[in-house]
């Protein structure tokens, strides 16, 4: 079982409610003051990760959970976002960043040396 802290928004107002979320194999359980919600994992839409920004879990009816616990989100939704998950891993690695610089530099060089005369 995965457990993490989150902020819950009901989708009707901008009010934030601190909650505890428990993640099971098929559902998550959201527990806060006067609030107890079970949501099947299949009905949760999670945004792909970007840098260290807060993760948003979109629930049915426009409700939302926001959390800084990246590890918990990854553990709960390991296979969502194949493409952007891969991009995110690349973005975190300086070695790939260096490769990206090399590629961009090579392309820029090529477009000035060969591309411009070609276009002209």
């Amino acid at each position: 079982m995965i457990e993490f802290e989150a902020a819950y928004y009901d989708g009707r107002t901008s009010a934030r409610q601190p909650v505890r979320v428990r993640g099971y194999t098929l559902a998550i359980q959201i527990v806060g003051e006067g609030l107890r919600l079970d949501v099947p994992l299949a009905k949760v839409r999670v945004d792909p990760p970007v840098g260290g920004t807060r993760r948003a879990l979109h629930l049915p009816d426009g409700a939302q959970l926001q959390t800084d616990d990246h590890r918990a989100v990854e553990a709960l939704f390991p296979r969502r976002h194949a493409l952007e998950g891969w991009v995110h891993r690349i973005e975190r690695n300086w070695l790939y960043a260096l490769a990206a610089i090399a590629l961009t530099a090579a392309f820029s060089w090529w477009s000035v040396v060969d591309g411009l005369p070609l276009a002209a």
């Binding site: 970007v50 840098g51 690349i90 973005e91 960043a97 990206a100 610089i101 590629l103 961009t104």
Partner: peptide
């Protein structure tokens, strides 16, 4: 952090 997002964006856009 943003530098890496930016350069990967650029490289993948080219590719």
């Amino acid at each position: 952090e943003y530098f890496r997002i930016w350069i990967v964006n650029l490289a993948l856009t080219i590719v």
